[in-house]
Design a protein around this nucleic acid. Structure first.
Ligand code: FES
Ligand code: FES
Lengths: 143, 143
DNA sequence: CGATATAAAGATATAAAGGTCTTTTATTAT
DNA sequence: ATAATAAAAGACCTTTATATCTTTATATCG
């Protein structure tokens, strides 16, 4: 499915959105502790997201990472594209070089149905949808 | 999703079933060429399947791999369990340590629906189902 | 300015997946 | 028996994912 890196990225962005009261920035150490993920690894991931403009960051005292105006509205597919690339959604289930409906492997039709369902879920859900779920107490980011 | 190794395993078993006219055994070299997969790597995979009893093998001249009486009836989930283990179907989408409905991440419900659909497909499809698809010309193993 | 805090960047480490090559063992045919 | 054949086994190698550590650049505050 998606990489661990990408899962960390999504959870990080949701955490930033949760704690965002405008001016509040969150340091990588706090983020890593809240999510219990490796600090320096998470740092690299968030730095990459910041470089691509999916979140914001400032250095120095009282600096850290924060949601910019794009963050909350991002669809999961946007994050997946930025981190893993969209190729992960186009791989043949049986490991062939190509996956295509015109020259399918014997699992293609069944698999493609499931894959399309997942893709639709990715494309429709936004970061703020996940934030809402956590805020309602329906789900958690860590554990 | 499933590993490349596991995809190779399934394709190899389907190929064996396709060419099986009882006494015919197929050498690893021929299998690797037909599927255009790395020969020695495929060798290891099939050797492992043979050791676990999912296929048969004999050494020496005119030896090779062949379907035993279990092969055709195996469900894909059996192959996946043997090669990758069932853990791959129980991982949290967002990379948390645990995936559970009682303590879910914000993607759990949506993801679990898709995962269950895939699981049902795996559990129901057998090697002979895939063989039938190829025999009907509906699909291919290589390309 | 100078000290400090913090992200950014880069080098390195570890583990797993994927793949190659060589040697050994078992089987068959001569 | 002996030679040939092909799987089995084992020792590597490469790539990718994951993770850690160190250094540098930048922003803030006194
Ligand atoms: S060709 Fe195999 S999944 Fe599409
Ligand atoms: S808890 Fe994340 S997918 Fe189940």
């Amino acid at each position: 499915m998606i990489s661990k890196t990408c899962g960390y990225a999504i959870r990080g962005m949701v955490l930033l959105s949760l704690e965002q009261n405008q001016e509040k920035k969150i340091g990588i150490q706090e983020i890593a502790e809240e999510l219990s993920v490796p600090q320096h690894f998470m740092g690299k991931i968030l730095q990459d997201l910041a470089k691509r403009g999916l979140i914001g960051s400032v250095k120095g005292p009282h600096g850290g990472f924060y949601c910019n105006n794009r963050t909350a509205g991002l669809q999961l597919i946007d994050v997946i594209e930025a981190v893993d690339g969209l190729g992960i959604l186009k791989k043949c289930f049986l490991g062939r070089d190509e996956c295509s409906a015109s020259n399918p492997c014997p699992m293609h039709d069944d698999f493609d149905g499931c894959r399309t369902a997942i893709f639709k879920t990715f494309a429709s859900k936004t970061i703020s949808d996940l934030v809402a779920s956590v805020n309602l107490g329906e789900s958690v980011l860590m554990g």
